[in-house]
């Protein structure tokens, strides 16, 4: 037994080969073999992404800027709206093509975040309800968040090929964790006596979920959404390696050419986009009543229009 002689107790690992990398490389073979089943799913997501992209691109920048600022005003108040307007102006002025690139990046981020919500919210609710599921999903989330993106970049590309869909999948893997975690935390943080009261008044488990637990967990869930958006944005450069267009691609190309100026333009674009998305979603997280309003339609542009049209939004108390 020649292998035994080579075995060294002080340094055992060098002589043992379980061939883990060789076996896991089988994923590649499996991916290639199953390409046909993947294709329809891929084309669905492709269409979703390009729909969002073309929608965003078709709106003239000025109109888009106004829309986003009004959105920020409604969601987060006047001060945030001013900040958002400044950020968007700066973004547009960075470079002649920066606005279009930013919209492409935004389309990828929106698609990824939409899918994160569709997948992550139910998972988070489940984790909030069941200790077993929480314990099972926690290591999975830890892995997804910490494993270097390049590791799953290759299998994903094997599976669906390069392009926006792979970019979105990679982004989801990296960005979904906080949404699941904070949804679970939000559900667990709901005052149990309020849930008990709902039970005592004959609510079904479904009604308790939608009428009590989710509304009360909303601020926490929105904090998770905010984190997910931020992580999704931080993935755009890595995603551009698998041929995702947008601001990330600018940074990547600038890196290849050692073009520091271009890298800064791309990087600043991502930062400005991040600030805009962050402030708007943070504003959503704070309830309107915290800002002194009773309902969302009593503030912001909607409130202004309602007041201007002379319709009292509420009859006086």
């Amino acid at each position: 037994m020649a292998e035994d002689e080579a075995f060294n107790w002080l340094s055992p690992f060098a002589s043992i080969d379980l061939d883990i990398d060789g076996r896991t490389d089988g994923i590649k073979q499996w991916a290639i073999a199953n390409r046909d089943t993947i294709q329809p799913i891929k084309s669905f997501f492709d269409e979703l992404i390009s729909l969002i992209d073309t929608t965003l691109q078709s709106v003239p920048p000025t109109i888009m800027l106004i829309i986003v600022v009004l959105l920020a005003w409604q969601a987060a108040g006047r001060r945030v709206a001013v900040l958002v307007a400044a950020c968007l102006l700066a973004l547009g002025l960075l470079a002649p093509g920066a606005w279009e690139l930013a919209m492409t990046t935004l389309a990828i981020v929106i698609s990824a975040v939409l899918l994160c919500v569709v997948i992550g919210l139910p998972l988070g609710i489940l984790a909030g309800k069941s200790d077993g599921f929480e314990a099972a999903i926690r290591p999975v989330l830890d892995t997804m968040q910490t494993i270097p993106a390049f590791v799953y970049l290759v299998p994903v590309v094997m599976l669906v090929g390069i392009g926006d869909v792979s970019g979105v999948i990679v982004t989801i893997i990296f960005a979904i964790a906080p949404l699941v975690r904070l949804t679970s935390l939000g559900i667990r943080g709901v005052n149990s006596s309020v849930v008990e009261a709902a039970r005592a008044f004959g609510a079904t488990p479904r009604q308790i979920m939608f009428k009590v637990e989710l509304p009360l967990a909303t601020p926490t869930i929105l904090a998770g959404l905010n984190q997910t958006i931020m992580l999704a944005l931080s993935m755009v450069v890595i995603a551009s390696m698998i041929s995702v267009k947008g601001l990330g691609n600018e940074v990547l190309r600038a890196m290849g050419r050692l073009d520091a100026g271009k890298a800064i333009v791309g990087g600043l674009g991502i930062v400005l986009l991040a600030i805009v998305l962050d402030r708007i979603t943070q504003g959503l997280g704070r309830s309107g009543r915290e800002r002194g309003h009773r309902h969302w339609w009593q503030s912001g542009p909607v409130g202004l229009i309602l007041r201007l049209t002379g319709r009292k939004s509420e009859k006086p108390q």
Partner: peptide, 13 residues
């Protein structure tokens, strides 16, 4: 059955 709780347990939203 109607129930009243010590800590009110009203729904804040």
């Amino acid at each position: 059955i109607g129930m009243v709780f010590q800590n009110m347990a009203l729904m804040p939203h």
